[in-house]
């Protein structure tokens, strides 16, 4: 019996947005600086790297997988592209392309191990996480790469909207969310990603090449990490071998907070943006309040457990 309930977005969809609005309201009351254009632009810049990683992570989690290597692969991509530009004097576009090839290559390896050898994504990416980290340190000799050509950091530049300076990178991130949202919602491949996460066997039996879908998802995620690496380089102005270490789990946190189910097949990519913003707003707001960063981590942990518990309970209620 169809009822109004079918037409309404579920709690899983609206919940994150409500949480974000409540958090913003709370911090606006606590700090006068919070509710300013400059502060929001800053929050967006602070979340743009995590936000982009979270796009790739969302794709993978939608297929009922998980990618623990995301931040480390991003760090490797960043080091590769900056060293190509700095050490070998390659044109930024070439250097960036090589970085993208490396991150996409890692995605391909993850995808092949998951689809061909049928290893759980958790184990595969636990392995590639360590491999990517070690390669990053070896290749960079744990040295930060500086003196980058201007072309490498273009996306860190800002433009003015009224009084507020907005970084190009944040626009790139928002555009990527819009694109991936439309792609997931309105194309056959996008719907197949949901179907694979929902019921892989049924999806395979309808004639969909589920392995190709999974492989595509892991490679696209790798490309997202490459773009995140570029944004990270643009934001910091250096190639940092220790980048990505907080982003690694923050990206998963953002996806989960955004209401995407870890069981696969359910969720909206826009939710991950909201999830990333929730983490960003909490960090920013608590900093403005002068709360120690340890408490920020504590609160993030509590939020994640709340989000996963909500997912689990709503699934039980749905049946």
């Amino acid at each position: 019996m169809p009822s109004w309930k079918d037409q309404m977005p579920s709690l899983g969809t609206l919940g994150p947005l409500i949480a974000l609005v409540l958090a913003c309201g709370f911090f606006a009351l606590q700090s006068e600086q919070f509710l300013t254009g400059a502060n929001f632009s800053l929050i967006l810049q602070q979340v743009m790297v995590v936000g982009l990683i979270a796009i790739g992570q969302t794709l993978i989690i939608l297929t009922a997988g998980i990618d623990l290597s995301c931040g480390m692969v991003m760090a490797l991509g960043g080091v590769v592209m900056t060293k190509m530009a700095h050490d070998h004097g390659l044109h930024p576009i070439v250097a960036i392309s090589i970085g993208f090839a490396v991150t996409a290559g890692f995605g391909l390896i993850n995808g092949l191990l998951v689809t061909r050898i049928k290893l759980p994504s958790f184990i595969v990416t636990l392995g590639t996480m360590n491999i990517a980290f070690a390669l990053t340190q070896l290749y960079s000799q744990s040295q930060t790469i500086t003196d980058l050509p201007a072309g490498m950091t273009l996306l860190g530049n800002t433009f003015a909207i009224g009084q507020t300076q907005v970084a190009y990178g944040t626009v790139v991130m928002l555009a990527m969310y819009a694109l991936s949202w439309l792609w997931l919602r309105d194309t056959a491949t996008g719907r197949h990603i949901y179907a694979v996460g929902n019921n892989p066997e049924a999806t395979r039996l309808t004639g969909i090449a589920t392995h190709k879908v999974l492989l595509l998802v892991y490679v696209l995620a790798g490309l997202c990490y490459g773009l995140a690496a570029l944004l990270s380089v643009a934001r910091t102005g250096v190639g940092d071998p220790n980048a990505g270490q907080t982003e690694n789990l923050d990206a998963i946190t953002a996806v989960v907070l955004g209401g995407t189910s870890l069981f696969g097949g359910r969720g909206m990519i826009i939710g991950s943006l909201i999830g990333a913003l929730i983490v960003g707003v909490f960090r920013n707001g608590l900093t403005l309040m002068g709360v120690s960063s340890v408490y920020q981590i504590l609160i993030t942990g509590i939020l994640v457990i709340l989000a996963v518990a909500t997912d689990q309970l709503s699934r039980k209620g749905g049946r």
Binding site: N199, T203, L205, T206, G207, R266
Partner: peptide, 22 residues
Amino acid sequence: VYQDLAVAPAMTIAENLFLGRE
């Protein structure tokens, strides 16, 4: 048609009917 109700539960009826043949 397989016995174990081979559908994608979180997707709509229309999406299930056209899955793989959109």
